[in-house]
Amino acid sequence: VEDIMIPRNEVKGLDLEDSIDDLLSNILSSEYTRQPLYEGDINNIVGIFHARKANHLLRSETVTTNAIKRFAEEAYFIPESTTLTTQLLNFKKTRKRFAVVVDEYGEVQGLVTLEDILEEIVGDFTTNTADDIEEVIARDDGSYVIDGAATIREINKATGWELPTDGPKTLNGLALEQLQSIPDGNVSFTVAGYRFETEEINGTMIKKLAVISLRPKKVPEE
């Protein structure tokens, strides 16, 4: 599951140490159905808050952190080494659709949903092309401008490429692995027959890269 999970740095949750106003704002404006509920640090997850509970919460006489915790579901933790087929069966057995992925030390690594696994095993419910993914934008010259946070698997699905999937999970991670440091200015490099050129760097992250395949195009067999 670690290959398809939402990585820790992209997890959006509800920190019970925030003010009640901030918590309510995050609950009501979130695009996600479920959010992890934690205390101060994402490793201290105390439950999962479902959006459908928001109305019940707002009907409470007083909205407090204890009230939010009371409406939360118990968190479901799974090891990062769990295979997709095993977790698919476990979701069915436990009647859950959302899991927190942890490493061998109990540190939170990310989140995975039933829908994520179904998409990976069965394929996307609709044809997934670069036009459908905001992080991958095609250019007229055959190259793509890609968000550094996009996952390698997502990029491969959108473009039909074969970027290596046995290393870093995101494009930013792949770039930093190759460069060994955060560049001061834009640089280019080649990996596995694809040329990468950084286009936007923000602090500790490479935000955007232009990528083009240098591999010969496959000729369809007759």
Results as ranks from 00 to 15, higher is better:
82 T>S: 12
31 E>K: 10
102 V>F: 01
119 E>G: 13
215 R>Y: 02
7 P>Q: 11
42 I>Q: 13
93 K>L: 08
53 K>S: 06
173 G>F: 14
193 G>R: 00
38 Y>C: 03
20 I>R: 01
21 D>V: 10
182 I>A: 06
114 L>W: 04
205 M>T: 15
196 F>A: 09
94 T>E: 15
165 T>I: 12
109 Q>H: 11
21 D>P: 05
192 A>P: 09
41 D>M: 04
51 A>V: 10
52 R>E: 02
15 D>F: 13
61 E>H: 07
9 N>T: 14
134 E>M: 13
197 E>H: 10
100 V>G: 10
204 T>M: 09
179 L>N: 03
101 V>S: 00
175 A>G: 11
191 V>P: 12
27 I>T: 00
174 L>H: 05
90 N>P: 11
57 L>P: 00
150 A>G: 12
128 N>Y: 09
97 R>Y: 09
209 L>P: 08
169 K>F: 15
72 A>F: 06
63 V>E: 01
117 I>P: 04
195 R>D: 04
182 I>P: 02
52 R>H: 03
104 E>L: 06
210 A>W: 11
109 Q>K: 13
39 E>H: 13
165 T>N: 09
205 M>D: 12
29 S>C: 11
88 L>C: 05
213 S>H: 01
129 T>Q: 03
155 I>T: 11
57 L>H: 01
112 V>K: 06
125 F>L: 11
99 A>I: 13
